[in-house]
Design a protein around this nucleic acid. Structure first.
Lengths: 244, 244
DNA sequence: GAAATCAAAATGTCAGACAATTAAACTCCG
DNA sequence: CGGAGTTTAATTGTCTGACATTTTGATTTC
């Protein structure tokens, strides 16, 4: 592992990249120990603080973990789905909020991806997934539920639907789209009538998933897409009216 | 912004989290300047190196950029799609390689997501997207193309298909699934016969996208899924035979 | 032989210094 | 008065050296 002396980028960034590449390309395996900070400083011919900055960069990406003590050091970390989820959701949320992705685009993406999962979920969902979906529908029908709790439940419902496909890669990809949209969904005020419609469609979806009829699920999801878009438009219009 | 004196986590991690939260919750906006390292050190009552480690963590997540000089400092960065893509792809690739996601799961996820895009792409693709797809098909048919180049072209083709949907959120989500699978695809040896079939299906897809017939595209993608799975199985079997 | 102690290795943190970079303020001359 | 060059100040980037803390393993002692 060497760094380019001509590059004018930060040394810590170069060192981090060098180590990161070594990990990604499989030169280092999970739980392998990196050389100590002092040794790395020697190897790269920099000071220990610089090495430390590089290691903190890697730690921020969940690529390594550090451990103090005699047998301590920095170890290559097994990237967990949980870490990756969290990271993905944070990034997706920031992307949506910072780049002003409009509601329509986010909504379209979310439901397009969900519809991709539905047929698989109809085929493979476990009773657990189904029970979660039913429980969330029941929760959504409770009167007096706050808009925020309703959104939370909505996320949980759709998450169960996606997880039902039994494909962790799909679940991972979808988590970003579904959860990142929550802040946008939170801007919508759900009237009793709105909730009734949504609960109805959720019930249709759950029924279809239970019966294994993919096409019915797809149909209900399409309707839900259209309805959500309509609600979003209304919310945006109200916002514009207030601020204008 | 304050940190918990009782927490036994690294100070730099706590400080990074504190600043990150401030950014995510909108207390700081794009291009806002953070206090200087010296000021942050004062505020959090730590030394400058510790603050620097915290800032490097944030820089690793593309949340800030730093600039030297008189009017320099750390600034909240607008997260670009490009950065997010790169990050997403790295994470997805690591997840697949570290967690031993099997070929079948990755493949299923990829094509499920692509099929979600196809109808939108059939409706909205620009001539540019179509031209890219045709060009990549042409490249794939060249004799003497290396397996790696064939895979690259495959990625480019599918990327054009996805981008044709004109939804950056979808493109972002899909980039992870499509590109992260490349290392797995690279393990497959593509015979001339294999390539012929794939080019044929790609042509079907491009034709369908051009004609705006979503169902035909979906059909071709389904066939491509099955065929890719078959090739993957063969490659795995060969591997097992060799190593066993 | 077991418990207590000590030494060693590693990360975590600090203080102070200097280098490099950049923009603004200032000076000087035409 | 104006512009070009110079100085200055602010800020990040890096280094050196030190000490604190944590953990393990060896050593000592009873």
């Amino acid at each position: 592992m060497k760094i380019d002396p001509k590059s004018k980028a930060d040394l810590s960034a170069q060192i981090a990249k060098s180590i990161r590449d070594a990990i990604i390309e499989g030169q280092m395996n999970v739980d392998d120990r990196l050389p100590s900070e002092a040794e790395l400083a020697d190897q790269f011919d920099v000071s220990r603080p610089t090495v430390r900055e590089a290691l903190k960069r890697l730690a921020a990406q969940n690529l390594i973990r550090t451990q103090r003590g005699a047998t301590g050091g920095a170890f290559v970390r097994r990237l967990s789905y949980q870490d990756a989820y969290a990271n993905h959701i944070t990034t997706s949320t920031l992307l949506l909020s910072m780049n002003a992705v409009d509601f329509e685009t986010a909504c379209e993406a979310r439901y397009a991806l969900e519809r991709a999962c539905a047929p698989l979920s109809a085929e493979r969902r476990t009773p657990d997934h189904l029970a979660t979906m039913r429980a969330e529908i029941h929760r959504q029908a409770q009167p007096g539920l706050s808009d925020e709790s309703f959104c939370d439940s909505d996320v949980a419902f759709h998450r169960a639907l996606v997880d039902g496909a039994g494909n962790p890669v799909l679940s991972y990809q979808l988590a970003g789209a579904v959860e990142a949209m929550q802040p946008l969904m939170n801007m919508i005020t759900f009237t009793a009538r709105n909730r009734e419609v949504i609960v109805g469609l959720h019930t249709c979806i759950a029924d279809a998933i239970e019966a294994g009829t993919a096409q019915a699920a797809d149909q209900a999801l399409a309707e839900l897409t259209a309805y959500t878009l309509k609600l979003g438009d209304q919310a945006m219009a109200e916002r514009a009216a207030k601020s204008g």
